[in-house]
């Protein structure tokens, strides 16, 4: 009986497994294979072993794209989660207009990346953009920054746009987590003499530790795969200052026709994201138990 049931359950998995194996796993494995060749994307190719890695190392793409990706992901995860958590704490203070703020906060998440890209291209545009006009209004025209045009600021400026789009979502998730904490737990901590900070540190944070882990992991993985906003806002520039791993892979494959090199970089990215995710997940799980 149970055996028969399990057999039917296996059949249930088949449709998802077919999609997943054919269109997700097989292409990735094929890509790793191409990473060992000098394929340009069309025609014949030769097996070149690890030569592509050497190319990536020698022209600096490897180091710069890993560096950009890590900065982007760290900024997104750390700043994004702190901001969302603080806003959720404020919204959780029994404010009557909480529902209204929650509703409007999610609106940026509804716009497509391309539309957000256009709107923020305007915000950042030198000589007529929103920031420029703001500085002009204050009489500081000459100090108006060209955030996307300077290699020092461009990466964070792009990462900020993604934060802007997604922080409503994060805040709503934290807010729901906070509302799920039984009020007795907070009351009894208050009676024991905890102040607001202590209640947050020793009651609220431990009780939503699981939510923090999920948000951190999802943010980290999507930050390490960052591509969309680079594509719509900077195309990797100025120079290579905003070229993340996924954007570099895309550019090598579709603009520079070095498909083999692109896939070698993709393989490195895959291993890196996998390793970082596992390490961070283990650390977070350990902290969850400690907290």
């Amino acid at each position: 009986m149970i055996k028969k049931k399990t057999r039917i359950l296996y059949i249930f998995v088949i449709p998802a497994l077919v999609f997943y194996l054919i269109f997700w796993i097989a292409p990735v494995l094929a890509s790793f294979y191409y990473g060992l060749t000098d394929w340009s994307g069309v025609g014949k190719y030769n097996f070149v072993g690890l030569r592509n890695l050497k190319i990536l190392w020698n022209n600096g793409t490897l180091v710069s794209s890993i560096k950009n990706t890590v900065i982007y992901a760290l900024y997104s995860v750390i700043w994004g989660n702190i901001q969302a958590f603080v806003l959720a704490l404020i919204l959780n203070m029994n404010i009557r207009s909480k529902g209204f703020f929650r509703t409007i906060f999610y609106i940026p998440a509804l716009f497509s990346t391309i539309v957000i890209g256009f709107i923020w291209s305007y915000v950042y545009a030198p000589h007529y953009g929103m920031l420029y006009e703001l500085f002009k209004m204050l009489g500081l025209e000459s100090m108006a920054p060209n955030l996307l045009g300077k290699s020092k600021t461009a990466l964070i400026a792009v990462a900020f746009v993604e934060r802007w789009k997604t922080s409503g979502t994060l805040t709503i998730i934290y807010l729901t987590g906070l509302q799920g904490i039984p009020s007795e737990a907070i009351e009894s901590a208050r009676i024991d003499g905890c102040n607001a900070w202590q209640v947050t540190r020793h009651v609220r944070i431990p009780m939503i530790a699981n939510t923090i882990t999920v948000n951190t992991m999802l943010g980290l993985i999507s930050g390490l795969k960052a591509y969309d906003y680079i594509f719509t806002l900077t195309h990797g520039g100025p120079g290579n200052s905003t070229s993340t791993l996924m954007y570099a892979v895309y550019k090598l494959a579709f603009i520079e026709n070095q498909y083999g090199v692109a896939e070698a970089l993709a393989a490195i990215a895959f291993v890196m994201i996998l390793t970082v995710s596992i390490i961070v997940l283990l650390i977070m799980k350990r902290k969850e138990i400690e907290a």
Binding site: I25, V28, S31, K225, M246, Y247, A266, A269
Partner: peptide, 23 residues
């Protein structure tokens, strides 16, 4: 199966779009 499916989150479409196209 649970871990196998979860691991797919790490893959980005940009990594393997050309083999996808070929298939």
């Amino acid at each position: 199966l649970q871990i196998f499916f979860m691991a797919g989150m790490i893959v980005a479409a940009q990594m393997s779009i050309v083999p996808m196209y070929k298939i």
